[in-house]
């Protein structure tokens, strides 16, 4: 199953759609790092909703999944090269 995650940046505000709603994903898995990485900053911070266009319901699930992935050392908390 190939899931398409387009960046909503080029669309106007009215036309933005949640990436999880369009793909009909009910459960956001913390093990699926590849999709989570679309919603993470260069500084490894969770992207705000106004950048990614994710709806509130999925943003909450997404942030939970990212935090779980961080806890299990799949995703770093901080970009280690920035601090040095």
């Amino acid at each position: 199953m190939s899931v398409i995650f387009s960046t909503n940046q080029k669309h106007s505000l009215g036309k933005r759609r949640c990436a999880f709603c369009t793909n009909q994903m009910k459960y956001i898995d913390y093990k699926d790092i590849r999709t989570l990485k679309y919603f993470i900053d260069g500084f490894q911070r969770i992207k705000p909703r106004y950048y990614s266009g994710v709806c509130l319901r999925h943003q909450k699930a997404l942030s939970g999944a990212i935090k779980r992935a961080r806890e299990m050392a799949l995703i770093p908390f901080v970009n280690k090269y920035v601090n040095k």
Binding site: R70, A73, L74, I75, P76, F77, K80
Partner: peptide, 8 residues
């Protein structure tokens, strides 16, 4: 075996 994102 996997590389960890940070030291544990």
């Amino acid at each position: 075996r996997r590389n960890l994102a940070y030291r544990l």
